[in-house]
């Protein structure tokens, strides 16, 4: 049984985008804050901290989840994937990122990392998602800028890719 004192900081380690990382966290530290402040990986954004806007969405053990509803200590030992890990190994934008650019699926870009992670998750398990499946996933995000049209166009394009 792991028992962590609430007033102390504890060493937490996990795999982030394929690399082992570690840092210190009180039990109450949100994973979003751990990623951004402890590890300096600021690609994951915070928009509400109540689980609704989706800006903080990341993948943990191959599932898209809300980073703001996850404690850093709960991520200990897991596989975490964030937007910083999406580009192709040579650094080029991947197909989903390219489609986002082409279809003007982002304006301010604040909601974008979360959407990219949700859609990455969708395509990982459902390479040919239906319109309804795309809507279900995109429906878990708030975007204030784009009216979602570009996001849907980009997702449809990736869904149709051979």
């Amino acid at each position: 049984m792991r028992e962590l004192n609430g007033a102390a900081r504890h060493r937490i380690g996990f795999t982030l985008n394929g690399r082992a990382v570690s840092g210190w966290a009180e039990p109450r530290l949100l994973l979003t804050d751990f990623l951004r402040q402890e590890l300096g990986e600021t690609g994951t954004h915070v928009g509400c901290e109540h689980g609704i806007c989706g800006a903080c969405t990341i993948r943990i053990d191959g599932r898209a989840v809300r980073g703001c509803l996850y404690l850093a200590v709960q991520a200990d030992g897991r596989e975490v994937q964030t937007v910083e890990g999406l580009a192709d190994p040579d650094g080029a934008l991947n197909a989903l990122q390219r489609a986002f650019r082409k279809h003007h699926a982002l304006q301010c870009g604040y909601c974008t990392p979360g959407l990219l992670m949700s859609l990455t998750d969708l395509f990982a398990r459902t390479p040919r998602p239906s319109e309804a499946q795309i809507l279900d996933v995109v429906g878990g995000h708030l975007c204030r800028c784009t009216g979602y049209a570009g996001i849907m166009a980009a997702a449809r394009e990736v869904a149709a890719e051979p």
Partner: peptide, 17 residues
């Protein structure tokens, strides 16, 4: 907003929980 302080336990078995 951020959570208040709490201790955290992660039991390894249901009995521990």
């Amino acid at each position: 907003m951020k959570p208040p302080r709490f201790d955290y336990v992660r039991p390894d078995t249901v009995e521990e929980a």
